[in-house]
Design a binder for these strands. Structure first.
Lengths: 123, 123
DNA sequence: TGTAATAGATTACGTATGTAATCAATGGGG
DNA sequence: CCCCATTGATTACATACGTAATCTATTACA
């Protein structure tokens, strides 16, 4: 039952840290987020707790230290969030969603080329 | 100050009704959502209230009837929600987001053709 | 060995959301 | 002209989220 838990905005930022490198101790995560995040370390601890509770991360105790690591892959989360976003905003239709963004967004020539290549491979 | 209010999942469904056709009375909205939604009419009334409060819809009283209509366009909401989604999940980078979906999604030949056309126009 | 510093666990609290029930005003039928 | 049905407004309540503070257990130091 790969029930993808919903990762909130703030939680997502914490997850990124662990997806980038893990395992990490709570303190390493706090440091990694650093002052830029503007979060009190307590706040980060709280989020770690909640993420554990919702099964997004897990920890092992190495001696007395807690080592956190993701319990679900970034890819799975991206798919989950994407699905619900596209469902909500585009009624589940990816095609129109893509069209919307291709039209709406400034893309670099590189990106345009890459997308065209991907589309060619589709056919 | 086109501050785009956040439209929640459930609220979005109500908004779709009004974006599709408006103005409507509360009852027409309830009917339009019908049993498929599984919502108690009270629930729908509550959402209408909240949407009014957050400035997503407005109403005029025609005689004693309340006529609801959107106060913000679907397009503006789509842009707002998209921005926060892409920010969260793709760090704000639309290019990779598009690449992800083009790769991940089954698209009809039509859709592929349309996207390629849009991309051509981009260059 | 008693005490302070750590660090995870628990509790806090305001806002948002999902999902309603209850209140109150108003108009139509008897 | 009064009472009920209708409909928007107010209130309810549990869960999620953002943001912490406090409690507690453990460890390092004086």
């Amino acid at each position: 039952m790969p029930k993808v838990p919903h990762i909130s905005d703030a939680e997502w930022i914490v997850m990124e840290v662990l997806w980038t490198s893990s395992p990490l101790t709570a303190n390493q995560i706090v440091e990694s987020l650093g002052k830029q995040s503007g979060w009190n370390p307590r706040t980060i601890k709280t989020m770690l707790n909640r993420l554990v509770k919702k099964g997004a991360i897990k920890y092992e105790t190495e001696g007395k230290r807690y080592l956190y690591r993701p319990a679900i892959s970034r890819d799975v989360c991206v798919k989950g969030e994407s699905r619900s976003f596209i469902q909500r905003v585009f009624g589940g239709n990816v095609g129109p969603m893509l069209a919307h963004f291709v039209e709406e967004t400034k893309l670099t020539p590189e990106q345009v080329r890459e997308l065209r290549k991907l589309l060619e491979d589709k056919e």
